[in-house]
């Protein structure tokens, strides 16, 4: 099989086992509500890590801290040996953190291919003058952007839809498109906010396969999920949050057998 150009597997696989993202006793409060309290965990390169917990456990807050939307009140977030606190969202993408949204935020007025082309923003250069003058290197870059977009689309399995307007796609495909767009930035880590939400069982299974395939390319995944089935199936390790605190961490099997985790989930029935 031909090596995909857009992902540099060797480099990243060498680092497998290293700690890529380190969350160090991070706290965050909103008004009087303590959304996170001294949460710590590591994300090893090359693994799929799941972040689960009942509603209000602080999953989304943690997600937003890592992606730069909020700043932690206390604690540190270290990515690739750099403290990323206070970095702007777009800067983090440059460092290699890509994300998807819970409610799918694609660029609806653009075609599917264009969405993935925009996704390559951080690893392309041409700006205002390049666009106006159409110098040869800019035209070359534009061709590369297109080829990469097609390659990524076929990796995800929606290359046939390249010319469709993205807002007209069914929801499941939009989700795949969003993942394709995130991959286009050539990330080291991909953060997925409830990727299975709104998908039916078949689609969820396909998504699981795709995520495994992405892992094989050497990309680390952090997956926030409300629903346990996908997480248990594909994650290497799982962190459980409850009421802003870390409740447990371990392999899916360990988590399933953990009494306090089960209590947290059963207790949420009210």
């Amino acid at each position: 099989m031909e090596l995909l150009k857009f992902m540099n597997d060797q480099d990243q696989q060498k680092q497998n086992g290293n700690i890529l993202l380190k969350i160090e006793s991070v706290s965050k409060a909103f008004g009087g509500v303590q959304a996170l309290w001294e949460v710590s965990f590591d994300l090893q390169a090359g693994l799929i890590k799941g972040l689960i917990g009942p509603n209000g456990a602080g999953k989304t807050t943690l997600f937003n801290l890592v992606t730069g939307i909020f700043r932690p009140d206390n604690g540190q977030i270290i990515f690739d040996n750099q403290n990323i606190q206070g970095r702007q969202v777009h800067d983090l993408v440059n460092l290699g953190i890509a994300r998807t949204f819970q409610n799918v935020e694609i660029f609806g007025s653009m075609s599917v291919a264009e969405n993935v082309m925009v996704g390559q923003h951080v690893r392309t250069r041409s700006g205002f003058w390049g666009a106006i003058t159409r110098v040869p290197w800019m035209v070359r870059e534009e061709n590369n952007i297109w080829n990469n977009a097609m390659e990524i689309l076929s990796f995800v399995g929606i290359e046939d839809l390249a010319h469709r307007k993205s807002s007209e796609l069914p929801f499941g495909w939009q989700r795949l498109l969003e993942i394709a767009r995130a991959l286009a930035s050539n990330p080291k880590v991909l953060l997925l906010d409830e990727p299975a939400a709104g998908l039916n069982a078949t689609e969820t299974r396909q998504l699981g396969k795709l995520l495994k395939k992405i892992q094989k390319k050497g990309i680390t995944l952090l997956l926030v999920e409300h629903d346990m089935s996908l997480t248990m199936e594909i994650c290497d390790r799982i962190v459980v949050l409850d009421q802003g605190k870390k409740l447990a961490e371990g392999t899916p099997r360990e988590i399933q057998n953990n009494a306090s985790v089960m209590a947290a989930y059963l207790g949420m029935g009210t």
Partner: peptide, 23 residues
């Protein structure tokens, strides 16, 4: 161009535009 696509991205969703690395 790359710039033009980024502009349209801001129009469609500013959050998503930031999330693909557009300043």
């Amino acid at each position: 161009s790359r710039t033009g696509r980024a502009l349209k991205a801001i129009h469609d969703s500013e959050n998503a535009a930031k999330a693909v690395g557009i300043n």
